[in-house]
Amino acid sequence: MRSPPESPIAPASLCRLQEAFGRAIAAPFVFDSTPDGQGGDYQLDIDSYDAELVADIRPRGTTSPHERLGIYNQQYWFRLLSTMQEEYPVTERILGTLEFNKMVMAYLTRFPPDSYTLTHLSDRLGQFLTHQHRWNRGLIRESAGLEYLFIRAFDAPERPAFHPSSQTEYHRDEILAQPIGLQPHWFLFEEHWNLVECRQAIKQEGVATITPVARHGHWAVYRGPDGPRAHRLNWLQARLLDALHRGTPLGQACDELVETLDGNDVQELAGNIGTWFARWVAMGWFASPSVEPAR
């Protein structure tokens, strides 16, 4: 394969300008909170702009070079903040918009966007939160984690789907011995608050405020025909799917699960597993196993 051509070397003056310009537009806002901490406003930190850069910008009318540069500074943050507010509606409502914006600004100052697509904007948000005393709370980490799964489910790759009819092409024993792949857009989510319901209330009913309540449960977050969805799982389903998701072959996953169950649970598993699988296959959760057809 032909290697790509060498890119030309940029003029030194262009490098210097872009470094200074890049720092200026990413300068975080200065927030003025109201005494109760619930409201407030922001100001551009125009004094932080590079003096040499500002000196190279022409004033126009009543607008100073600082203010001209400030348009880009403001647009940079408005774009990123609005993207994050759209992707993280539960987290925004838990924190309140002002605090959410402060959190996002701190995060994106620590981890600036490094991809050409905004899809990857929050790839390191989870990592960031665990190191931030101010926002490192279980509820915040969990809501951010849930909302990140919805982002990933949206445009993750899709492998060929596993359909029951294709099962006839394989030996049953081989199927049981092979890992059944879940689709790359499928994720298991364990909740300790009713955050999925909160998200649905925001997305479907447009509610402005939410009150998360403590509740333990499991959900599959996956991509349906029209986009990401969540489907509630009981604990048996979650354990089985978790094992499959980790690559455990179906037969082994069932055996290991049965060993930990009491009689009633074994009965529930045995009585329902066929129905569950049929539903999960219909929802497109499984990718075709990579076994060769039986000879």
């Binding site: 872009q18 470094e19 890049g22 990413a26 880009y72 774009r79 600036p112 966007p113 991809s115």
Partner: peptide
Amino acid sequence: RSGSHHSHD
């Protein structure tokens, strides 16, 4: 972009 920092502008 400047370095690895994409401005999305």
